[in-house]
Each structure stands twice: as C-alpha cells, then as structure tokens.
Amino acid sequence: MEGYLVVAAVVLAGVLLVTAAMAVRRLLAPRAATEAGLRTYESGVDPVGAGWAQSQVRYLSFAFLYVVFAVDAVYLFPWALVLRDAHLGAASLVEVGIFVGVLLLGLVHAGRRGLLRWETG
C-alpha cells in the first residue's frame, strides 16, 4: 500500500502546484484587454494581408536531419555508458543495432535527396 500512497502524494502535489500557479496568475495578470492584446501575434510578425498564406516546407529537411543526428546521440551515449553491464546481454545489442539501422536508413535517404551536400556561397 506504500507505493500507492507515494503515487497519490505525488499526484496531489502536482495538482496543488498547478492550482496554485493558476491562482497566482489570476491575481497578478492584467485584466484590461487592449486592442494590441487581442490581436493575433505569432513569431514576432504582425498580421498583415489575408489570413491564409502558403508556407514553405524547406525547413522540414532541417528538422529531419536534426532527428537523425541529435536523437541518435540522446539514445546512444547513455547506452554506451552502461554497455559494461553484464545484464544487458545480446538483446540490448540487437535493439541498438535495429535503432542504428533505422537511423542509417534515414541518413541514406537524406543523402539520396541531396540534403548532405555542403554548398558554399
């Protein structure tokens, strides 16, 4: 029963912290709505023109490369630190092999699309 009490205490503490934060915000936040406060604002750009605009998807390739290069580091470094543990065994090696294989597949895909070419100028 002790485990359930700990979980209940953590959940209760979380609910109390969120409730306290909302109460403090309600007490301290300004209430008068101005025209500037009600205007749509995104990414530091004031809204001008029509409400619909076509966005470019070239940044998708940068996000893709970030996932390939950063996420593998997030998972491989901790795995390499505990690699000396005898309890990991062959199953861990197979799992990491599959993970690295999927990442290499993404890297090959990026290379075939020309995303890894370094262009100067």
Rank of each mutant, 00 (worst) to 15 (best):
V96A: 12
L81G: 14
L81R: 15
L60T: 05
Y59W: 14
E35S: 12
H87P: 01
R39V: 00
V48Q: 14
G97Y: 02
R31N: 05
P30Y: 02
E35V: 00
A73H: 05
G44I: 00
R39A: 15
Y75M: 14
R39C: 07
S55N: 06
R84Q: 08
M22I: 03
E42H: 08
L81I: 01
W79G: 06
Y41I: 03
A36C: 05
S92E: 08
S43G: 09
P47C: 13
G89N: 02
V74Q: 06
Y41G: 11
Y66W: 05
D46L: 14
R26D: 08
A63Q: 12
A23G: 11
L93D: 07
F64M: 14
G44M: 10
L60I: 03
T34L: 09
F69G: 04
P30W: 03
P78A: 09
R25Y: 11
F69E: 07
A63W: 08
G49V: 01
V48E: 14
A36W: 04
A32V: 15
G37Y: 02
R31Y: 01
R84S: 11
L81E: 03
E35A: 09
A50N: 06
V74Y: 15
D85G: 03
G49F: 02
W79D: 10
R58L: 13
M22F: 13
F62R: 13
V45P: 00
A32N: 11
R39I: 01
L83T: 00
L38D: 09
A91P: 00
T40A: 13
A29L: 13
A91E: 06
G97M: 04
Y59P: 00
F69C: 10
W52P: 01
A70D: 04
T40E: 11
R26M: 07
G44C: 09
L28I: 08
Y75T: 11
L81Q: 12
Y41N: 05
V68W: 03
L27V: 12
A21S: 12
A21H: 05
A32F: 15
A86F: 13
L83E: 06
P78H: 03
V96Y: 04
F69H: 10
A70E: 05
R31G: 09
L38P: 04
A23D: 07
A80Y: 02
W52N: 04
A32I: 11
A91I: 03
P47S: 15
L81T: 01
V94T: 12
R58H: 12
V74R: 15
A90I: 03
G97S: 05
G49H: 01
P30M: 08
F99R: 00
S55D: 07
G37D: 07
V71S: 12
A33C: 11
G97D: 04
T34S: 15
A70W: 08
L27M: 11
E35W: 00
G37T: 02
F99Q: 04
A23I: 01
A29K: 13
Y66R: 11
L76M: 14
G51T: 01
L76P: 01
A21D: 10
A32R: 13
S55F: 02
A23S: 11
E42F: 09
V96G: 03
